[in-house]
Nucleic acid binder design. Structure first.
Lengths: 229, 229
DNA sequence: CGCGGCTTTGATGTTCATCAAGTAAAGTGG
DNA sequence: CCACTTTACTTGATGAACATCAAAGCCGCG
């Protein structure tokens, strides 16, 4: 009974499947996986397309975007490996509700949705663990939207800066992966006001800005702003 | 092989279970169900409480509420029978993320969550149909929040009036089940501005107001406002 | 090297929250 | 059942927060 080895060994998807599937089923899934690299800026899924795959972000950073009309978009959330399975709506809808776009070079691992569903029907434990993950992803989106809604401009910007520092990069210095316009589309304000607020934070020596690089200089004050505005 | 009869026969929960459970399992679930009537205004679940039941709204109308601090709340959504299973987060979290409060007299039917989970583990098809329903509920909340976010005051009020007329009451005349304050908490604006906007609509003869009763007099115009503001 | 998209700043006006003050309605205790 | 308290509703006046418009510099990319 030697350990099963495949190229997915280091993949997080592995644990998702492995904990609830028998070895045979796991190997069969594993063999059919498709892996693809999406360069920064590329479209991974387009809003309205039929959902054919169960997909998982192995590495990189993506955004979920809703196209309102020709020129306006709303960003629903940013997604990194682990915290998100890129499987929003896969059970409830036949088409992608949102576009998925790579913000950094991103590796996507995908399986045929039909096969995953088939496997879920045959294995309730597996189905339940999938439901749990989808559930959690949706919960996080809703919670973040509520958190943003209760804040005003300054608080929203502070919130998103802390989000990238704490959740995404785990560092107070990081390269902003999104444009000012994208921040605006995420927090529901205008690009100009995002810029103005960042400049204000810079003048108040709360952050340092160097092109895309941002350093949080006074985290305490930023937290205060995030809580009170 | 006579038809199985129980008091749940007219219940929508029935189809949810029945389509994917064998007769024995269904009967066993059905026998253990707990049914309770919550009068208008009463608390059904409190934010932070442990989630112990899988619950379903049989009749009535409820609101999901997030308590921010002593005096401020956010309304996440309104839920009616069928479109909502009051089971947000049941798989992802151990505690209720939001309070659930009855806006009208509401009947709740509940089962022990552990037993439902057990059954899901034994029956993948059932698990998948549950996942689908939770998924759809979350999707709707996110979509509504995005729809509200992209509108300004007038558009938001128009949107919610049309929501109650089209989705909830299927009539252009209805008794508003929520206070002005609750509308404000739902759309993220102040009570005063909700009232002002309703008055404005009344003066423009778009709606008629008589206490809690609202009649949509010029639906076309209301739709226009909903789309353009 | 020039075009288009992103960034930045300023000036202006709109939208909205806040404060205040009063009326109506609904619940509470004697 | 009535006086009383509280909560919901309503309107106006004011200022703050934010969007919009305009203009210019910057940067990457074909």
């Amino acid at each position: 009974m030697g350990e099963y080895q495949c190229s997915c060994n280091g993949c997080e998807l592995r644990s998702l499947f492995f904990e609830n599937l028998e070895k045979g089923a796991y190997e069969s899934m594993c063999a059919k996986k498709q892996q693809q690299l999406y360069p920064k800026g590329s479209l991974i899924y387009r809003q309205g397309e039929k959902i054919s795959h169960f997909s998982y972000l192995k590495s990189g950073l993506v955004k979920l975007v809703r196209n309102i009309d020709d020129k306006n978009e709303q960003i629903i959330c940013f997604a990194r490996p682990l915290d998100f399975v890129s499987l929003l709506s896969i059970f409830s809808e036949t088409c992608h509700q949102y576009s998925v776009i790579a913000l950094e070079d991103s590796e996507i691992c995908s399986l045929y949705l039909d096969e995953v569903k088939e496997m879920a029907m045959q294995n309730g434990r597996f189905a339940l663990s999938l439901a749990e993950k989808i559930n959690r992803a949706s919960d996080n989106i809703i919670l973040t939207m509520l958190n943003i809604r209760q804040r005003r401009l300054l608080g929203r910007i502070a919130y998103i800066l802390l989000y990238f520092a704490n959740e995404v990069y785990k560092s107070d210095v990081f390269d902003m992966p999104v444009s000012r316009k994208e921040i605006a589309e995420f927090i529901g304000m205008t690009t100009e006001n995002v810029i103005r607020t960042l400049s204000e934070f810079r003048q108040d020596k709360i952050i340092k800005i160097n092109g895309k690089t941002i350093e949080i200089a006074d985290k305490e004050k930023l937290v205060q702003i995030s809580l009170n505005a």
